[in-house]
């Protein structure tokens, strides 16, 4: 059974079970967002009333806007820093402090958010930096840049180093070699890193909870305060919008990357 690459009944069952486990809760969530009844557990017929309500919920719209701004700023900075960190890890050779540096890059990937959030808050208090938009953004840059670094790093590991040498050999300075050869070739990974950083920032509750100022409630913070009051059709509707938007963005991005990659290094 395990001999050939191929799907046996056992593996098909495992796949179906795993995917059902992942998707059934989300499907239920989506379906109940169209429930006309205020009681989440009782089906009261189809309705889109909760979605109409969303648009009138000014607090929610404000929070969404804050989240989008934070995510855009954080993802962009994190992509720049994370790409540099990946280059440093893969390319810079054995510089002093490399192990410490690697530790600093990999630790935030697994660090419980409560600790990261608390630590960053205490830093901002210690340096007397008023909590607000920028504290959340800086905090998000810090933990998302490490995810970017890991994605770009794995691309750099398979990058043919002689491409860069060829550019140098043909007269390009290291900086020009990077921008004219290395960056275009690793661009899909960099873009994927940006997208991941963006969604991680958009999704973060705990670190934002610690570092956000009073006027800068993010979308997850707003949803969280509603969720704590229990399951409501409104939250289901917000969640559905979130799921649909993210799914659309991720799917189209991965399709675009696939297409782009096919253009660059595809085979006939």
């Amino acid at each position: 059974m395990a001999m050939r690459k191929g799907l046996s009944p056992v593996t098909v069952t495992a796949l179906a079970g795993g995917l059902a486990f992942l998707y059934v809760p989300l499907f239920l969530l989506v379906i109940y967002s169209f429930n006309d009844s205020r009681l989440v557990t009782v089906w009261g017929g189809w309705s889109t009333r909760w979605y109409r309500g969303l648009l009138q919920n000014q607090a929610l719209m404000d929070a969404a806007w804050v989240s989008l701004k934070v995510a855009a700023v954080a993802a962009t900075l994190a992509t720049a820093l994370g790409t540099l960190a990946a280059l440093a890890l893969v390319r810079a050779g054995a510089f002093r402090g490399r192990t410490l540096f690697a530790g600093l890059v990999y630790a935030p990937l697994v660090m419980p958010e409560v600790i990261t959030g608390l630590a960053l808050l205490l830093l901002f208090v210690a340096i007397d930096f008023d909590r607000g938009f920028w504290t959340v953004a800086l905090a998000h840059v810090t933990f998302t840049m490490c995810f970017v670094a890991v994605i770009v790093q794995s691309r750099l590991l398979t990058f043919d180093h002689s491409l860069e040498e060829a550019a140098l050999d043909l007269g390009a300075t290291p900086l020009r070699a990077f921008f004219s050869v290395t960056l275009p070739v690793i661009l899909p990974a960099v873009a994927a890193g940006w997208l991941l950083a963006f969604t991680l920032s958009l999704d973060d509750l705990v670190i934002a909870n610690f570092t956000a100022g009073p006027g800068n409630t993010t979308l997850p913070m707003r949803i969280y305060s509603q969720v704590r009051l229990g399951v409501t059709p409104e939250v289901n509707a917000i969640s559905t919008v979130f799921i649909v938007v993210i799914t659309a963005v991720v799917l189209s991005a991965s399709l675009a990357m696939k297409w782009q990659q096919g253009k660059v290094e595809g085979r006939q």
Binding site: L163, E165, A166, A167, L170, V181, V185, V264
Partner: peptide
């Protein structure tokens, strides 16, 4: 990048 020498790489290193 300042040497009047050019190299043909084993992998060819063509910019994809």
């Amino acid at each position: 990048y300042r040497r009047p020498v050019n190299m043909m790489f084993q992998s060819y290193a063509l910019f994809p």
